[in-house]
Design a binder for these strands. Structure first.
Lengths: 124, 124
DNA sequence: TGAATATTTGAACATTTGTTCAAATATTAT
DNA sequence: ATAATATTTGAACAAATGTTCAAATATTCA
């Protein structure tokens, strides 16, 4: 029997109930760092809003500026700009300036791959 | 020149400023449905919380029960159960009962692929 | 049956989030 | 310079979110 019921003392010294001690320890050993976990969850979170996702989906096909995205989403320029900043902070989109206009596009191939996998998943 | 500045009348009949009309129309043509957009954003949103993500990451390797996940995450059983329900509602995890214990695991290959891509992305 | 364990549920609360509005910045054209 | 356009910024507010707590289910074991 590879996993059996057990008890475990956690960081605070409190005894906590555990069913499969070996599994919990394995999970702890293989866990990513808190920093990576936070970064990864922020990455998904930023895709987890319909309007931001709509923006990102649009950028799969073409480079667009704030005005374009505002027209497409029905949001104000300001709202789009706020959302683009969050997307850029997490390296999901990048931008380049051409005169007054700033063009946004997806940051790299990972982003469109994540979107495609998500689409496949919901279409089952 | 494939795209030039233009104006556009939106659904409300309001004139809205647009820089690249052709791009906006292309984005509109190629947009997924509102239903799909909502479902997709919910899928990412559910991964967008550190504790839920920690749960999902743990389930990449082993099947675990609520107690195991509570021990691993440091959350109460109740909190884990609430989060698992959300994950299950969006088909990110599935469960099977064995006596009193309910074992949770990832729903399908898409989920671990999305996690791997996300990890690759943040590690650049 | 009744006690013990594992999990779920719903309401309540504090925190976080997305949008709006007004004002600021940056670039181009006159 | 000044005006016009494109975008950004910060504060404020309503709405959504995650956790807690207490109580309810579900299953097993004696």
């Amino acid at each position: 029997m590879s996993s059996s019921r057990a008890r475990l003392i956690d960081e605070d010294g409190c005894q906590i109930r555990v069913v499969h001690l070996d599994r919990v320890e394995k999970a702890r050993r293989e866990a990513i760092s808190v920093h990576e976990l936070d970064r990864l969850s922020l990455t998904y979170k930023v895709l987890g809003d319909p309007n931001r996702l709509k923006i990102v989906m649009a950028l799969r096909n073409v480079e667009m500026c704030v005005c374009d995205l505002a027209a497409f989403t029905g949001l104000t320029d300001s709202a789009v700009s706020h959302q683009l900043r969050r997307l850029k902070d997490l390296a999901l989109v990048k931008s380049r300036r051409e005169g007054q206009i700033i063009y946004y596009s997806l940051d790299d191939e990972h982003v469109s791959k994540i979107l495609n996998l998500g689409l496949e998943h919901i279409k089952e």
